[in-house]
């Protein structure tokens, strides 16, 4: 579904050139859930923006559904770290924003909007304005909005990182439930190992400065996955440990 082919990215800044990404090759299959993890500054958000078409790569190319990405595509949807809701629109109207922006027929999406709102646990809040909702609820609205137009690809840029730890866990579990009903390919950027293991079919580890593809770790744990006590605790901790070692190399000890 997504092919990243030899992508490198350089930015010119006032303090000189920044080499953000270095020859990234990556393939994401249809309906796969891939998480990108890495320390801050490894260019994971940049890679996501390149896939979305918001940024053109300095070198290399991205293909989505077999077509080269030159600008944002209608079948690719992005969810950001901040909810990015319009404060003057109520929940329902915020959810329908992409339908208006893409020039689709609104009547065909009102039922879907309602169904998604209910699926995300927002029933009864349709008429509320964003400032009347908690941070977690706002991000739920943002999630529903990013799904409204039935995107083939959903790109998520640390969507839960601004939430408190408990809400964050709850949202990760909810996310699986919501997207289970949709057939969507998802690339999810995070710096949380727990989140990466909980959500992903494969975890892509990036190394910082310049961002290189360090390793791809498979997560063959059956779904639905939960936090806390579960039958696959050993597997989870083994994968988490591997990711820990990759992301935080043990200090060099002289022997």
């Amino acid at each position: 579904m997504i092919e990243v082919i030899g992508v490198s990215q350089r930015f010119d800044t006032q303090r000189g050139e920044i080499h953000a990404l270095d020859r990234i090759d990556l393939e994401v299959h249809e309906n796969e859930f891939v998480t990108l993890v890495g320390r801050s500054g490894c260019g994971k958000s940049t890679l996501l923006r390149i896939i979305s078409g918001l940024i053109r790569p300095t070198v290399g190319a991205v293909r989505v559904a077999g077509e080269q990405v030159a600008r944002p595509r209608r079948d690719v949807s992005v969810m950001f770290q901040r909810p990015a809701l319009l404060p003057w629109r109520n929940v329902r109207k915020n959810v329908l924003l992409p339908v208006e922006m893409l020039g689709l027929d609104k009547r065909q999406y009102t039922d879907r909007a309602q169904a998604l709102i209910e699926l995300a646990g927002l029933a009864g809040f349709e008429e509320k304005l964003p400032h009347e909702l908690s941070g977690g609820m706002q991000q739920r609205v943002s999630l529903v909005r990013s799904l409204i137009q039935r995107p083939k690809v959903l790109l998520m840029d640390e969507p839960f990182s601004a939430l408190d730890a408990l809400t964050r866990e709850e949202m990760s579990v909810e996310l699986q439930r919501v997207v289970a009903e949709e057939s969507t390919t998802i690339v999810f950027v995070t710096h949380s190992i727990d989140e990466a293991v909980l959500l992903a079919d494969r975890v892509v580890v990036l190394s910082p400065r310049p961002g290189r593809l360090e390793r791809i770790v498979d997560v063959p744990i059956p779904r639905p996955r939960t936090l806390g006590h579960n039958a696959h605790a050993d597997q989870v901790s083994a994968i988490s440990a591997e990711l820990h070692d990759l992301l935080q190399p043990a200090p060099q000890v002289a022997t």
Partner: peptide, 26 residues
């Protein structure tokens, strides 16, 4: 806010729709 600009860009909304639906009301 930059996230609203990115949002409307990611929806490939075009400048007029972005202005009418996001920038001006903001």
């Amino acid at each position: 806010p930059s996230e609203l600009v990115e949002l409307s860009q990611s929806l490939d909304a075009g400048e007029i729709k972005e202005f009418v639906k996001v920038r001006f009301p903001w």
